[in-house]
């Protein structure tokens, strides 16, 4: 039979192609793609000038600045903090290590609204941490620093969980070679380990940044939500909706959506490029 004729192109041996394709395509079309048409439909009702007026409104532009600035700060802080945690979890053994490892997933497991009210309570002027910081002149809650803090909390696992497996795969000989050649800890880390971790670190930080741009629940409680000062873009969409301004909400949402999809695509391309290089061309 044809199965014995080896050079034939691979045929589908396993059953269920039709069924799984049917379920997957139906789901992707109905749940993921169809709702996008609602946004397109709403936007078509706007002229270009109206659209531009909404997305370039002063209060909305201020919200872009706050969101991007805080997300950038949070992502940079997480790059350093996440690298430290991944390093400690992979390289050292110490009591409580498994607990620390489990704790890394807390921000993903904890509902964002719970994180939001907890951080707001902790960092308010009368809170456990806020009470210590405010006499020093550091106000966190209801400022954009608080927004960055909430963003950093919800997105830290992205960096740790992206860097950790790559660091685990680093062969010990690499360290040894650097040390025998007389490199100090700092030089060895900077010249040998960091270049190896770089793609994972950038990917993790990028994912953390994208997540921070869209975060809502964890932020609104600690943000203070003062117009022009501490309003994030996701909140602007929410405010427009509460005013039944669906067109306005859609216009701002289209900006958020375009930016996050573009960033995610960029991260995927960048990651694919490095994976190819590391695995000698295999995807």
């Amino acid at each position: 039979m044809s199965a014995l004729a080896l050079p034939l192109p691979r045929r589908r041996v396993l059953p269920g192609f039709g069924l799984s394709l049917g379920i997957s395509l139906t789901f992707v079309s109905l749940v993921l793609l169809l709702p996008m048409t609602g946004l397109v439909g709403q936007l078509k009702g706007l002229s270009l000038a109206e659209y531009w007026a909404i997305i370039s409104d002063g209060r909305v532009v201020a919200s872009y600045t706050v969101t991007i600035g805080a997300a950038a700060l949070a992502a940079l802080a997480n790059a350093a903090f996440g690298l430290l945690l991944a390093w400690v979890l992979v390289r050292y053994d110490f009591p409580g290590k498994r607990l620390l490892d489990a704790l890394m997933d807390l921000p993903f497991a904890l509902p964002t609204a719970v994180a939001g009210i907890t951080l707001a309570t902790l960092y308010a002027g009368n809170g456990w941490v806020g009470g210590l910081l405010e006499p020093l002149g550091l106000k966190v809650a209801y400022t954009w620093v608080g927004i960055a803090l909430a963003m950093a909390f919800t997105s830290i696992p992205f960096v740790v969980r992206t860097v950790q497996p790559v660091l685990e795969d680093l062969p010990p000989e690499v360290d040894e070679a650097a040390m025998t050649l007389g490199a100090s800890d700092a030089t060895g880390f900077r010249r040998v380990i960091l270049p190896y971790l770089w793609p994972a670190l950038v990917t993790g930080t990028g994912l953390a940044f994208v997540r921070s741009l869209g975060e809502f629940g964890a932020i609104i409680f600690i943000a203070g939500n003062a117009p022009f000062e501490t309003e994030i873009t996701a909140l602007m969409i929410f405010v427009k909706l509460q005013e039944y301004d669906y067109a306005g909400a859609s216009a701002i949402a289209s900006v958020v959506l375009a930016v996050s999809l573009a960033l995610l695509l960029a991260i995927n391309v960048w990651q694919g490029h490095f994976i190819k290089r590391l695995h000698g061309g295999r995807g």
Binding site: E215, A234, I237, L241
Partner: peptide, 14 residues
């Protein structure tokens, strides 16, 4: 990739 608020919004619009 989609912000949760945007996810809610697209469903509301449709």
């Amino acid at each position: 990739a989609v912000s949760p608020v945007v996810a809610g919004l697209i469903y509301l619009l449709l």
